[in-house]
Nucleic acid binder design. Structure first.
Lengths: 217, 217
DNA sequence: GATTACAGTGAACGACTGTACACTGAATAG
DNA sequence: CTATTCAGTGTACAGTCGTTCACTGTAATC
């Protein structure tokens, strides 16, 4: 659980001199980590400044040395999580080999990233639809994600003739299918992963099957 | 805004004698309506018992005459909202005419129901991924919804040979596309509706285009 | 070596939270 | 007509909340 803090506190043991900047940055990260921990089973709006501060091992008033408000902490969290998201996008960009190869590679990438950064993805999927100010900035980020995907898709031979509008429609459809998969993975009990990724691949295959027969009207 | 209460309070004007049961049921409904109002821009977990009670025109302690806790109020809200959802499902069940007719009719039904019950759909989409105990019961309800859709789909000629597993995969895909559309409608600025429903129809068309060429794996 | 900058401290505040308890008054039951 | 039921009242209490303010001790600067 929230033991990240205690580990961090051990830095006194290692003999390397820690600059003030480094110390500050570590506390800041401890705040972010604590918040992410607490977010495992609650929406962001229910976090209190005091409990985040306590979890990070500082007194409530010291919180303000790092963020002007909880909302600002939330924005930083969105940035951290979307960095992971962009990393995933970068990993998934692969040479258009076969349809099937591309599908299973993409699903595998999503699977791997979700499992390696569960808290980031949980945060993003939770707060995306949660209302509040974070939802808006996450929506912007997801739109960029979808836009990038549309650009990638445009390079595929069967899609070269598609209008940008249709490409965005397709990209949105793929993204929302992937979000569904992400949520399923986050809610899965152990051992259900292969079933979920299998269904995810089927969904993508079905979508891509329609592409050759598409007429925009 | 939250004037539902005041309207309700006018019942004293109408001369019909109101039984005690009726009065109680009205207050209960006022609590639900107030909560739904407050949920317009905040997650459920941030609602306080006191403000819901105040909005319904009763003192905080009287809240307990109707619900044992806010969570129980939330469960009642899920029931109310899913009643709307089932109503939509019933309306959308139409004779399998043409593909295109079925698609535009379904999208039109979703559009109409979302606009007529924005607060219910906002509540469902927000809390579905919001964590907490409500998310689970909403997930159960959505799975039933998806299951019903799978059964309906099985009646279509091109889908008669499909395995139940594949039918569920297809139903889930359609449901998540529809949820995306719902969220888009709820976030839309006035005038964007036709663009959104247009895209929604395209998404469904693309999905259905793949069906004739499907081979299970 | 003296001075400054600043991350973290600790007490105090007013506002708000859920809930316990004893109550009132009117619709209902006998 | 009397007794009971029960939705709603009002007070009170112990917690938690965000934020204020004056402070301390040490790393960084001159």
């Amino acid at each position: 659980m929230s033991n990240a803090v205690d580990i961090r506190r051990l830095e006194a043991v290692s003999e390397e001199p820690v600059s003030r900047q480094e110390r500050k940055q570590r506390t800041r990260q401890a705040l972010l980590d604590t918040a992410l921990d607490l977010l495992a089973d609650r929406p962001f709006a229910t976090l209190s400044l005091r409990e985040v501060a306590k979890g990070a091992g500082i007194v409530p008033t010291a919180f303000y040395r790092h963020f002007a408000s909880m909302e600002e902490l939330g924005v930083a969290l969105v940035e951290e999580a979307t960095r992971t998201l962009r990393g995933m996008m970068r990993s998934a960009r692969t040479d258009p080999d076969t349809y099937q190869g591309m599908i299973s590679a993409s699903v595998a990438t999503v699977h791997q990233f979700v499992r390696a950064h569960e808290d980031h993805f949980r945060f993003l999927t939770r707060e995306r639809y949660g209302g509040g100010p974070l939802a808006r900035s996450i929506a912007v980020e997801l739109r960029m994600f979808s836009g990038d995907l549309a650009i990638d898709l445009a390079r595929f031979a069967p899609l070269r003739a598609w209008s940008t509008e249709d490409l965005h429609m397709l990209a949105d459809l793929i993204v929302s299918a992937m979000i569904t998969t992400t949520v399923e993975l986050l809610e899965a009990r152990p051992g259900e992963d292969t079933k979920i990724t299998g269904t995810a691949e089927k969904r993508l295959r079905l979508i891509l099957l329609g592409i050759p027969h598409w007429k925009s009207a």
